Simulated assay, not measured.
Amino acid sequence: MARGINYNYKIRRFLEILRENEYETGENIAKDLGISRAAVSKFAKYLKNLGYSFEIKKRYKLLESPDIPFPWELGNMGEKVIFFYEVDSTQNVARELFIKRKLKENFWVIALRQTSGKGRLGRRWESPEGNFYGSCVIRPEIPIKEVIKISLLGGLAVFKTIQSFSPIYDVKIKWPNDVFVIRREPKKISGTIAEAFGEAEKIDFVVVGIGVNVKVSPLDISISLKDIVNNPSSVFLVEFTKKLIGYFAEVYGDFCEGKWLKLKTEIENNLWRGKVKVDTGRKSFSGICYGIAEDGSMIVQKEDGSFEMVYYGDTLIYS
């Protein structure tokens, strides 16, 4: 559902006018937007087909808006968003559009649903409507072995977004890419995947995919934001999307300015540091998550008291 920036801006301004004024004439709206009254009528008809509701008599009144993250609902950040109702995977679409030069650096592909959502290590990410599914293309100047830092940045952005809705002490970042709610048993609320593309040790670009259970928990082992906040009726996908894009831009901006150690400290302050079981594909072992090394790897204190750096693999946590 790609629209030009100018078109999206006019839709955004059209809605702003109706939200600022309970009733407004078509003539005044047309004058503000620099379009004809017939074009105003077309805007209203277009938006009605998308789920908006209007009272239209001599004046226009906005009655209801769908909780869908259309670009025009995301403020200035919407200028860097391409929205789809449904895709196979936002990761695939973002990569393909970027390669074809139809998607710029730091732009997002966001979808309401995914039919084949991508999780880490080839897993499927269940993607019912009501949650956040988005992928952003970035071009960090780092060696390929440090791409794990990008996954951690995604987790930090999600953590900060969740806390902005309601401070929750039992939300933790799990190395390298997840956010969990730790109660009687750990339940996953978010995951990040960072896919690097390039040659040998040189990264050309990274597609960062983030999935967050905002309104719906699709599995018994998962949980949603709506399940854990004090006021579930305050959870809106549009607001969540706007905040998450903003927080990711903030942490990635700090990263590009050389503030990794500051970010690492913030991640460690909110990191799960309890029992973990690590499976690298070559070996598995248990221990305690001790922290994160400067290169982004996880430091595990094993059951025999020794320490091991983990650069890749699957990590299970135990409360």
Rank of each mutant, 00 (worst) to 15 (best):
I299F: 00
S234I: 15
V87W: 05
E201K: 07
R273Q: 13
V278M: 01
D178V: 08
K283C: 10
I150G: 02
G313Y: 04
P69S: 12
G26R: 03
F159G: 02
I144M: 07
F307E: 13
G296Y: 12
D220S: 12
F98Q: 01
G4V: 08
K31H: 10
R13K: 10
D227K: 01
G287F: 13
N230C: 11
Y169F: 09
Y318D: 12
N49D: 15
Y247R: 00
Y60W: 11
S36Y: 10
G122H: 05
Y290D: 06
I168Y: 14
D204N: 11
E64Y: 04
R184S: 15
V158Y: 02
K188S: 06
N269F: 00
G258S: 04
D32M: 02
G287E: 10
G155N: 06
Y133G: 10
L244I: 15
L219A: 12
V179A: 08
G51F: 05
F54E: 00
I150V: 09
K302Q: 12
S166H: 05
E141K: 09
F248I: 03
R37T: 15
R19E: 15
L63W: 01
E303I: 07
S319W: 14
E16I: 07
G305L: 09
G209C: 03
A249K: 13
D314E: 15
F54H: 01
Q114D: 09
K188Q: 05
N269K: 14
L219D: 05
G34I: 08
I245H: 07
G34Y: 12
C136Q: 14
L103N: 09
V212Q: 09
L244V: 14
P232Q: 11
V40Y: 07
F83M: 03
A157M: 06
E257C: 07
R184K: 11
L97W: 00
W72K: 04
P232H: 12
L47R: 02
G209M: 05
Q301A: 06
